[in-house]
């Protein structure tokens, strides 16, 4: 989704109000209940988040220059890949793809169902359509992408055809290439 994102797409940055920050915080915890015990590391109570506004109504939220999560329009908050790397694996819902899919994901492709159902892949919990998931890979320790389920996990197993997960963020996309400090 952000394959071509560059610094030129950033239009403004501003510190956000503490009340807005509080509501974002609760929203993030609502979305990912497992993060509750880590939330103070992610967004410390006394910290100051910065909103970086970009084109197409995309907002990046950063703490000390590090991207924490992003939001398009008023949709779900999407955790950044560097944040996912920092926290334990079970903090976010996840799926695992087989080895063959890695190279396509890192090229920016969406994930096709067979990549999620073959031997090296795993979907540990069943999720509904629209769920945000961290994407791990066979034989690898860290997440390589963040995506949204295009159909429920049951349908993925049943149909086994077409796009299963749309990839939002992946290693080496425009947002990743902004660097650790934005």
């Amino acid at each position: 989704m952000f394959k071509k994102f560059t610094r030129d797409d950033i239009s403004s940055r501003s510190n956000i109000k503490s009340s807005v920050q509080r509501s974002l915080r609760t929203r993030f915890v609502d979305q990912f209940p497992n993060i509750e015990e880590h939330i103070d590391e992610v967004v410390p109570k006394k910290s100051q988040l910065t909103q970086v506004k970009c084109q197409d109504r995309l907002s990046l939220y950063t703490a000390d220059g590090e991207l924490v999560f992003l939001q398009q329009h008023d949709d779900d908050l999407i955790p950044s890949l560097r944040l996912v790397h920092k926290l334990p694996k079970d903090t976010f819902p996840w799926v695992r793809v087989d080895r063959g899919a890695i190279k396509f994901i890192l090229g920016g492709a969406n994930i096709m169902c067979p990549g999620l159902t073959s031997a090296g892949a795993e979907m540990p919990v069943s999720y509904e359509k629209g769920q945000l998931v961290a994407i791990y890979a066979e034989g690898k320790e860290h997440a390589l992408a963040i995506g949204r389920l295009e159909m429920s996990t049951d349908d993925i197993t049943k149909l086994n055809k077409g796009i299963g997960v749309t990839v939002i963020l992946f290693l080496g996309d425009g947002i990743w290439n902004l660097g650790p400090q934005i």
Partner: peptide, 18 residues
């Protein structure tokens, strides 16, 4: 968390970098 100094990915993904 360590990232590769050349291609910025986690080192286990270096093989897919350029």
């Amino acid at each position: 968390m360590i990232y590769c100094g050349v291609c910025t990915l986690p080192p286990e993904y270096c093989e897919f970098g350029g």
